[in-house]
Amino acid sequence: MAATEGATATAQAAAEAAGAATTDAPSDLGEPTVIADGVHVVYRVRGAAGRSGGGGPAALMRALTRRKGGGGGGAREVHAVKGVSFVARRGEAIGVIGSNGSGKSTLLRAVAGLIPPERGQVYTSGQPSLLGVNAALMNELPGERNVVLGCLAMGMTPAEVRERYDDIVDFSGINDKGDFISLPMRTYSSGMAARLRFAIAAARDHDVLLIDEALATGDRAFRKRSEKRIKELREKAGTVFLVSHSNKTIRDTCDRALWMERGELIMDGTAAEVVDAYEEANGD
């Protein structure tokens, strides 16, 4: 079943597709917040063949030959997302699953507007916020300053930041083992940094929040807190996308799931159905 048109894979998905195309969405479905309309994403990787190889002369040769080749030589194209369509609505938490390199993260980056689609279009209400593991804030600054700057960058006023500061620090759990919040972020473990970033981003209500593996690095207590926060965001009519390799997290947190493989959306349905099918296909 995992090989055909995504929207027709299950009855549930078919209902979704039908809802997408009618004028008046059924009343049990919220307003759409993200619409992906036949999205294709193509990466152009420059100097894909051993970019770091050789020294200065080799780099010069590459630069010269590229100029001569008229741009066709050095760049390699990677077709990372191939014609994905879906409609996400208010109050939905959507898990995105698939093997490594299947285009999950790329899809989220396209939704966030960080990569322009080659073909097709992503429509969003408001500005989606993407939270990834490698989204470093300012490493040379202490955690506390990152909290303040991150909140101000999200458009909060200084008064709002003061009001929420303690909650953010508590949520991140950074200070559970001593006063780490005053240390520069470069001294944090990757788990601590990811927790703090999530805590900052989750401090504001988002129309669309995209989470790329950010919860994987947290410990059990933190995962519990984040799952609770995701539920709250959904109740406030936000839409949450969650990329995760933990099928349990998807089952527990999401009500719908998208299964991506080799850049194509091969299944769109309830989280339980899609995760079951995914586990079956992978022989778990």
Binding site: I35, P116, V122
Partner: peptide, 14 residues
């Protein structure tokens, strides 16, 4: 889908 987006005031991302 494009029409649905227009109807609900969704703007192209980015």
């Amino acid at each position: 889908l494009a029409e649905l987006a227009a109807r609900h005031g969704l703007a192209p991302s980015g």
